[in-house]
Amino acid sequence: MNKINYQVCATCIHFAISKTESGMLYRCSRLGFETKPAYSFRCWQPKEHVVRLMKKRGGSNNE
């Protein structure tokens, strides 16, 4: 598997979720703006469990 299968905001260390009165708010803490879990940006840095899964399945975060 390659990183494109994982490279979405929801798997990034900068992805932050907060619950508001109007619903869930998804933000990129690094970029400072609202995002969605399926979006992808070049600044993606995978969470540790995603790195382990990528290595287990034969990929890496350096591809």
Rank of each mutant, 00 (worst) to 15 (best):
R30S: 13
M1I: 14
P37G: 09
V50Y: 00
N61M: 05
A38L: 07
I17L: 07
E21G: 12
F15V: 09
E63W: 03
V8A: 08
N5C: 07
A38C: 07
N2L: 05
R30M: 05
T35P: 00
F33K: 14
Q45E: 15
G58I: 08
F41Y: 12
T35E: 02
N2A: 10
G23T: 04
S60P: 00
A38S: 15
I13V: 15
A10F: 01
K47A: 09
I4P: 00
G32M: 04
G23P: 01
N2H: 06
M24F: 01
I13P: 06
E21W: 03
K56D: 10
R27V: 12
E21I: 09
S60V: 03
H14I: 04
G58L: 06
E34H: 02
I17H: 06
I17R: 11
K55G: 02
K36I: 09
Y26P: 05
L25I: 10
K19D: 10
R42N: 08
N62Y: 04
F33N: 14
G32P: 03
N2M: 04
G32R: 07
G59S: 15
P37C: 03
V8L: 00
L25H: 12
P37I: 04
I17G: 01
E63F: 02
C9L: 06
S22A: 12
K56I: 09
H14A: 09
Y6I: 13
V50L: 01
C9M: 08
R42C: 02
M24I: 13
N2P: 05
E34Q: 13
K19I: 11
R52N: 14
N61Q: 10
R57C: 07
P46D: 11
F33P: 05
P46W: 02
T35Q: 02
L31G: 12
E34S: 11
T20G: 09
Q45N: 14
S60Q: 03
L25A: 08
S40P: 04
C28H: 08
R42D: 12
W44M: 09
T11G: 03
E63Q: 14
S60M: 01
S22N: 12
K47T: 15
I17K: 13
K55Q: 12
S22T: 15
S40L: 01
I17C: 05
Q45H: 10
R27F: 00
W44D: 15
Q45R: 13
S18G: 07
K19C: 03
Y39G: 04
L25D: 14
S60N: 12
G32F: 01
E34K: 11
G58F: 03
P37K: 05
S60L: 01
S18E: 15
E63T: 15
K55A: 09
N61F: 01
K55L: 10
M24Y: 06
I13C: 05
I13A: 05
K36P: 02
S29M: 08
T11S: 12
L25K: 15
Y39T: 11
I13L: 06
A38D: 15
N5I: 05
S22M: 08
R57M: 09
R30T: 12
M24V: 13
I17T: 15
M54H: 03
E48R: 06
C12L: 04
C9K: 10
R30E: 14
T35Y: 00
G59T: 13
